[in-house]
């Protein structure tokens, strides 16, 4: 445990993980209840495309190699979310197709970028599966600021997001500006994905947003409780997973998600035993 206090990079990883452990599930509550879990998955893959693009630029133009590719990833995720939204309007009755189109398109482009940028290397590997050593002091402060912004927005727009998630038609009828709130929501989701992937990696980031929420849903007696339970489950899994990974020498991202899955399975078993059926 003392290693976390001795090495600065581990300390920043720990602080970052603690923030993400709360932020991802809290944002995930809205992602899940709006039935957009798959959207989160698509956005995380678009983030990969952005990262590959950033690595490619770094190769062509060496000074750019100093940029943290994650920020380019976030830019791509926001751009991709706008595209998904456009496509959802074109395929009005087949909305989920929009997600698949963008997801596979993004992977296609991403893989091409990766091959141009010299193929897979350890750098890319850490973006795919997460890496605790990837968090620098600057990263930490940027993550801190962005996380605070997202949390603040969540508090400010809680009413609107809640109403739109529960019953979109009624929300619009009562004068809530659906399109603007939705756009904001997507941008926030893209940001949270970009922030969370530093810890668990792109392939596992949507798990961090959905698994704690799914587990919390089995017990939550109100919408407020759902937030609290999801945040607690998320935080406990992230911290336990991080320490476990450190001592067992396993991949932190995978360990965290594994713990989340375990909690989810337990919560289903326990709530079933208590007589609760489907949600």
């Amino acid at each position: 445990m003392s290693a976390f206090w001795t090495y600065e990079f581990l300390r920043y990883s720990l602080f970052t993980s603690m923030m993400i452990g709360v932020l991802a599930p809290v944002m995930g509550v809205f992602v899940v209840v709006r039935r957009m879990s798959l959207m989160a998955d698509a956005l995380s893959h678009i983030t990969l495309t952005g990262i590959a693009f950033s690595l490619l630029i770094g190769r062509w133009h060496p000074p750019a190699a100093a940029w943290n590719p994650v920020y380019m990833g976030m830019v791509f995720a926001v751009g991709g979310s706008v595209l998904i939204d456009r496509l959802r309007r074109i395929f009005m009755h087949y909305k989920e197709a929009a997600i698949t189109i963008i997801l596979s398109g993004a992977i296609g482009v991403g893989v091409v970028f990766i091959s141009l940028a010299d193929g897979f290397n350890t750098d890319l590997f850490s973006y795919l599966f997460g890496s605790v050593s990837a968090v620098s002091r600057t990263d930490f402060f940027i993550i801190l600021i962005l996380s605070s912004v997202v949390l603040l927005l969540l508090v400010l727009f809680y009413k609107e997001l809640f109403f739109l998630s529960f019953d979109e038609e009624q929300a619009v009828a009562s004068g809530i500006p659906r399109q603007r709130i939705h756009a904001l929501f997507i941008v926030m989701t893209a940001l949270v994905i970009g922030l969370s992937m530093q810890i668990v990696g792109i392939l596992l980031v949507s798990a961090l947003m959905t698994l704690p929420v799914a587990a919390a849903m089995r017990f939550a007696g109100s919408f407020k409780q759902l937030f609290i339970y999801a945040a607690v489950i998320g935080e406990v899994c992230v911290l336990t997973g991080l320490f476990a990974a450190f001592y067992l020498d396993t991949a932190p991202g995978g360990t965290i998600v594994l713990l989340n899955t375990l909690v989810l399975v337990l919560s289903i078993a326990v709530s079933k035993a208590a007589g609760k059926e489907a949600v």
Partner: peptide, 21 residues
């Protein structure tokens, strides 16, 4: 019509929505 009955919201929370607009 459009609401999701599995939504974990209490009666109080649902009625509060009427004040949001």
């Amino acid at each position: 019509a459009s609401f999701n009955s599995g939504f974990p919201a209490t009666v109080k929370e649902v009625v509060s929505m009427g004040l949001y607009g």
